[in-house]
């Protein structure tokens, strides 16, 4: 089934989305990949303030190509989620439980999605030009020194993904 999701979300908004659904997102998404995950995990461990509030928000694993004149970002498709697996349960436990990436996740991530009533959504790998066309604005909100890996806040419309793990921890096929 095709469902829509507006981000940030409120408690209950994710209940209707089931593993195997196409999901069309509009709203605000945070963007971070390997180094951002390491830094967010370090910030939590050392009790530092986080660069954005986790509750109700989603994180997209992506590192864009440079933006030509007139574009918010260059190509902007997902990167492999498995590399974030070591960090995701900790982040989900602190409220960042809706994740967008590509490829399979560990059992620990599936359980973290279930325990924290989040979602794991797969964006379509390699579709960088398509996703760029659905991004209306982008700004760096932390770690600018990471270049294409900096933490971004983006606003999107009609952003297509596929639900791999739903808020009850159910999987689409063998996504773990």
């Amino acid at each position: 089934m095709r469902k829509s999701l507006i981000l940030p979300y409120s408690p209950g908004d994710l209940d209707a989305i089931e593993a195997g659904d196409e999901v069309i997102i509009s709203g605000v998404i945070y963007v971070g990949r390997d180094q951002v995950h390491k830094r967010l995990a370090d910030a939590i461990s050392s009790g530092q303030e986080l660069p954005f509030g986790f509750a109700g928000n989603a994180i997209y694993y992506m590192g864009p190509s440079p933006a030509p004149e007139g574009y918010a970002l260059g190509a902007a498709g997902p990167t492999t989620s498995a590399r974030m697996d070591p960090f995701s349960p900790l982040l989900a436990g602190h409220g960042l439980a809706v994740m967008i990436g590509k490829g399979p996740r560990s059992e620990a991530v599936r359980k973290a999605v279930e325990d924290n009533h989040g979602l794991y959504l797969q964006a379509y790998g390699g579709c960088g030009a398509l996703y760029s066309s659905r991004i209306d604005s982008a700004e760096v909100i932390a770690y600018p020194e990471l270049g294409p890996e900096a933490l971004l806040r983006i606003t999107v419309h009609d952003f297509p993904v596929f639900c791999m793990i739903d808020s009850r921890g159910r999987l689409f096929r063998s996504s773990v």
């Binding site: 992506m62 260059g74 960088g128």
Partner: peptide, 15 residues
């Protein structure tokens, strides 16, 4: 995505 890259001149994929 293939059409979008052709239309805009953006790379097919960010990698």
């Amino acid at each position: 995505n293939i059409s979008e890259a052709a239309r805009t001149g953006l790379p097919l994929c960010q990698d």
